[in-house]
Each structure stands twice: as C-alpha cells, then as structure tokens.
C-alpha cells in the first residue's frame, strides 16, 4: 500500500468512527427511555429509533475497523475504547433529560443527519454511500417523529412550551460542532469521499426553523458554540454513559447469548 493510500484509509477510518460514534451514543441515550417513556407507544417508538441508530453504528464501526486494518471489530471499538477515543458530538452524549429535551435533541440531530446522509449517499466510497442511503430514509423517519412531538409540545400547554424553550436554549449552543470539518478531512471532501458538513448548515437552519415556527417556538438567540467532541474532548457525561454501556462486556469479555 502506498503512503498516500494508507493516509486516506486512516482519515476515512476517523470519519466513519465519528459518524458511527454519534449513532452509538445517541442510540444509548434513546434506549434509556425503554420502560420510562410517557406512554407505552413512546416506549416502542423511541426504542425503535434507538435500534435504527444502533444498526447504523454497527455498519459504520465495522467499516472503521476494516479501514484501520488492525482487526478490531465493532464490539472492540464500542466496548474497549475510553472517552478520549470517542469522536461523537457533545450534543448526543448529553443526558436524556425530560421528554421535551429528548424531542428537541432528536429534532436538531435527525435533521442534520438526514441532510448529511443524503449528501454522503453520493460518496465515491461505496460502503459509506450504502450505509448513508439506508440511513437517510431512517433519519427522515426520525425527523417526522421529532417534528410531530415538537408541534405537540411547543404548541401545547404553557408548561410543555416552556420546557421546549429551555431545552432549545441549552442544546442550541452545542450544535455548532455539527457543521465543522474535523482535521484532516478536507482531503476526503475534495476526493469526493466525505461530506463538508458546513454545506448543509443553511438547509438545516431553514428546516429546523420551519418546524419550530409550526410549534410556536423560534431559534434561540444564543450563539452556536465551538465544541471539540470530534477531537475527543467530551463533557463529563460521556464517561458515565460508557461506564454503564461497557461494563458488562468488559467484566465478561467472552459472554454471548
């Protein structure tokens, strides 16, 4: 393998890892609602959204392992990395919060994910393109779910409206990171392998803005902050999440069912 090819594979590996970690961590947060949702139907719905994201995570992490060439499997990557080695957005690792918080995060993230996947489905890298094409359909379904609840809660009671506003104020600043190109990825973008996320920012703001307007809410007047989850600098919440998610596998490495 030439040095250039090896460098491209290594960058692609980081890229797949970042996208896969977003799915894995948000999937875990959504699964925390299983058995705890406001009603039975939401238990079923949120668990199913979590399962979609887990499926995407499996495809992306398996592919990252192949690109890395070290023989690490999806399970090795999910269970045997520590927080500094995770590349997910700070947004997705935040606690599940109340139901308004979860709905707001799903709206912000799934709109972003749908737009990103639509672009990525045109990638010259066939495996990423396939995962993205499938994932775009699923993300669009997640957007529908989030939009429905955004309208019901935003345009609901004074209490539900206020909770949506609080969630928006807290989560909006964390969205800046979604549209930044991680280091080393400009080469992938120019080779047509990866997507420059800043290209979907305008469309994202437009779509999210429309959904909020329908819900008598509006985009909060707070800046999008720069976060560094993509570089491995996380909030304190990720470590706690990983402790729970990884404990069984680390305590019983060969357990199967």
């Amino acid at each position: 393998m030439t040095d250039a090819l090896a460098a491209t594979r290594s960058r692609l590996c980081d890229y797949a890892l970042a996208l896969g970690d977003d799915c894995l961590i948000l999937s875990h947060r959504l699964s925390e609602w299983t058995g705890n949702a406001p009603d039975f139907e939401e238990d079923v719905a949120l668990s199913n959204l979590a399962l979609d994201l887990l499926g995407q995570a499996r495809g992306l992490l398996t592919h990252a392992g192949e690109l890395e060439g070290s023989g690490r499997s999806e399970d090795d990557l999910a269970y045997w990395r520590d927080d500094l080695q995770f590349r997910n957005l700070i947004l997705v690792e935040q606690p599940k919060g109340d139901f308004a918080w979860t709905v707001t995060r799903n709206l912000l993230f799934s709109t972003y994910q749908e737009l990103l996947y639509q672009e990525l489905s045109q990638s010259a890298e066939p495996i990423l393109a396939g995962i993205a094409a499938k994932g775009a359909l699923e993300a669009s379904y997640h957007c529908e779910h989030a939009a429905l609840w955004t309208a019901r809660l935003g345009d609901g009671t004074a209490e539900s409206h206020q909770r949506m506003e609080q969630a928006l104020m807290a989560l909006w600043p964390l969205t800046g990171e979604m549209f930044e190109l991680a280091p080393g990825q400009a080469e992938l973008v120019s080779a047509g392998l990866a997507v420059d996320p800043s290209l979907v920012l305008e469309q994202w703001q437009l779509r999210v803005g429309e959904k909020l307007q329908d819900a008598t809410l509006s985009i909060p007047r707070v800046p999008q902050r720069r976060c560094q989850g993509r570089l491995g600098f996380h909030s304190e919440h990720l470590g706690h999440l990983l402790a729970e998610m990884q404990h069984l596998h680390r305590s019983h490495p060969d357990a199967s069912w």
Binding site: E41, V44, A45, N48, L49, D52, E138, E144, H145
Partner: peptide, 13 residues
C-alpha cells in the same frame, strides 16, 4: 391510529 411510530419503522399501532 394510536401511534404512528410502532415497533419497527414499517409498523404503526
């Protein structure tokens, strides 16, 4: 329809 979002993406309740 009691829920548009069922146990899989292809099912509603």
């Amino acid at each position: 329809e009691t829920s548009h979002f069922g146990s899989t993406a292809c099912k509603s309740l």
